[in-house]
């Protein structure tokens, strides 16, 4: 190795270490506190490790943790499925079909996502109140769909436009109908994009706070971020242990999902389609 390479790898290593400490730090802190039986162990210096926080969170009915978790999972999953379906079809249309305004539509949709959430949440509350949707899953699924579709569309578009048009033509010449081209050629190749958009939408919905706190009232529809934020201690103190245990459990689905999906979100699936 030359001097330059040594310095380079040192810098890369140091930066990596710093980033890891920066992102994992709070996470480790959270796990640590959740495992301690008393949150003030740093001050008192006495600590006993136990799983009691986890047991409490999972079993105490008054905390409604499992309700929040299932609300979150349902709402995020349904939103992710619907958004992925629509955004991938739209991306196909925009990248494949000639229709007036095909370059304007994606921009308009993107522009729509520029409104800050806070500016529309009041109106949403009024509208959903009239429709009797407040405190239902629908009250979150509907705005989430509108809120995440632009980003999903743009992710999908970037993948769909990478697929050469010649592949469509080749498949048409080979006798495949439009639908078969779609599910045999285009969708399999756009899969990484479809998966990454689905994952991002799921994560966004899973973490969303503002809509969730404004449009839901109790555990029948509240999601994890809201539920955890509203955890009440028994004696008026903040139950740090429970809070951290709940947060730790709440991150498990995301970790699992990311691990499953990252296998599909590999680059280079397009290799060998065209010359070069």
């Amino acid at each position: 190795m030359t001097r330059e390479e040594i310095i380079k790898s040192c810098l890369i290593f140091a930066t990596g270490l710093f980033l890891m400490a920066f992102t994992l730090g709070p996470f480790i802190w959270m796990i640590w506190i959740s495992l301690a039986d008393r949150a003030d162990f740093l001050v008192t210096g006495q600590v006993e490790y136990s799983l009691s926080n986890y047991r409490q969170v999972l079993t105490a009915h008054s905390l409604h943790f499992l309700d929040y978790l299932s609300n979150s999972l349902w709402i995020s999953t349904i939103t992710a499925i619907i958004v992925t379906l629509f955004s991938s079809m739209a991306a196909y249309a925009v990248s494949r079909m000639r229709f007036p305004g095909r370059s304007v539509v994606p921009l308009l949709i993107l522009a729509m996502s520029m409104f800050p959430q806070i500016s529309i949440v009041g109106y949403l509350f009024e509208m959903f109140s009239k429709a009797g949707l407040i405190n239902s899953h629908m009250a979150l699924i509907l705005p989430y769909i509108a809120w995440t579709i632009p980003i999903a569309l743009w992710i999908n578009m970037s993948y769909f436009t990478q697929i050469p048009l010649d592949l469509d033509k080749a498949a048409l010449v080979d006798g495949a109908g439009r639908m078969k081209v779609l599910y045999k050629i285009i969708f399999p190749l756009a899969l990484p994009g479809i998966f990454s958009s689905a994952l991002l939408v799921f994560i966004a919905c899973f973490n969303e706070f503002l809509f969730a706190i404004m449009l839901t009232i109790d555990y029948t529809a509240q999601t994890l971020p809201v539920g955890i934020a509203l955890f009440q201690g028994l004696h008026g103190e903040i139950p740090w242990g429970n809070l951290m245990a709940a947060s730790a459990i709440a991150s498990v689905p995301l970790v699992i999902l990311t691990l499953i999906f990252q296998r599909y979100i590999v680059a280079g699936l397009m290799g060998g389609a065209v010359k070069g």
Partner: peptide, 20 residues
């Protein structure tokens, strides 16, 4: 009539092989 009805086949300027 479309390509299939005409019973033609085509080799493309880019080979257009299905990569998957």
């Amino acid at each position: 009539s479309g390509p299939f009805e005409r019973d033609i086949s085509m080799v493309f300027q880019s080979y257009a092989l299905y990569p998957h």
